[in-house]
């Protein structure tokens, strides 16, 4: 402890006492490095799961949309329905534990497992979002594409999906925010994410107040940041409509 802090402590300054506590909790033994590592892992898991979720969600949504008038796709659509029911019906923690201890029972590193588990789960929510976006696009758009000679998939990719994304961008951001917060359970499978890092430090230092409030603030900060980005995006999209 530096002499300045000691001096303040001697004067009985509560603010200085708090600073000293922070120093003790986060700086001694470089414990803050664990927080940084946890923060990085939280970001990696969230973004990885988002990517997987978007891909799976798009595929499932397109299959379900096309199956509405294609017999050959009905079995695939039925499988999609089972997927949606199962992954939206089982608690995320349970899914995560099953992935870590059953599906990838020999996994040494929990991070890829967490990315896959959160991604597959998020895909189930994304699928319904994206499908609602596809359905919001005027049916005449598909007919126009088909009348030019495009296949259903080509029309979907070039005409329908780009328009659908604009309708559902806010909903996708909300899903991203939910996903970010949900990754806080990754600690269940030995991943040191942000929450787990804070909890480990709490365990070592018996400082529950500063560790838990700091981690809460960091999540809150990230969510507020995402909300700001969404607002900007929405403003830009609205400008696009006036084109």
């Amino acid at each position: 402890m530096n002499p300045f802090t000691l001096l303040l402590l001697a004067a009985g300054n509560p603010f200085a006492a708090w600073l000293a506590k922070l120093h003790e909790t986060f700086l001694v033994n470089d414990r803050y490095k664990m927080m940084i590592e946890g923060f990085g892992n939280t970001i990696v898991i969230t973004l990885g799961a988002l990517a997987i979720g978007l891909v799976i969600g798009t595929i499932v949504a397109v299959i379900k949309y096309l199956a509405e008038d294609s017999r050959s796709l009905r079995p695939a659509a039925a499988i999609c329905d089972v997927y949606l029911t199962v992954f939206r019906g089982v608690p995320m923690v349970v899914q995560l534990l099953i992935f870590f201890y059953v599906v990838f029972a020999h996994a040494k590193n929990g991070i890829p497992v967490a990315i896959i588990a959160f991604g597959i789960n998020s895909g189930a929510y994304m699928a319904e979002l994206i499908r609602s976006g596809i359905n919001a696009v005027d049916a005449g758009q598909m007919e126009a594409g088909r009348s030019l000679g495009m296949s259903r998939l080509q029309t979907m990719r070039v005409i329908i999906l780009p328009q659908a994304i604009r309708y559902i961008l806010p909903a996708i951001f909300n899903e991203l925010i939910a996903l970010l917060k949900e990754t806080s359970i990754a600690g269940y499978v030995a991943v040191v994410d942000l929450t787990r890092a804070a909890n480990l430090i709490r365990n070592n230092t018996y400082d529950a107040v500063n560790t838990l409030f700091l981690v809460a603030l960091i999540y809150l900060g990230m969510v507020v940041l995402l909300e700001q980005i969404l607002k900007k995006l929405e403003r830009r999209l609205r400008k696009g409509d006036k084109r």
Binding site: D138, G140, Q141, E143, A144, R146, S147, L148, G149, M150, S151, V158, I159, P162, Q163, R166
Partner: peptide, 28 residues
């Protein structure tokens, strides 16, 4: 799809692609 390429169609509601410029509508 191949045969539809040879049959142009014009709709009552136009059905232009709103996310593309006129040029892109014509060339896509």
């Amino acid at each position: 799809d191949l045969h539809r390429q040879k049959m142009g169609m014009v709709f009552q509601q136009f059905n232009l692609f709103p996310h593309m410029t006129v040029m892109k509508n014509l060339t896509v």
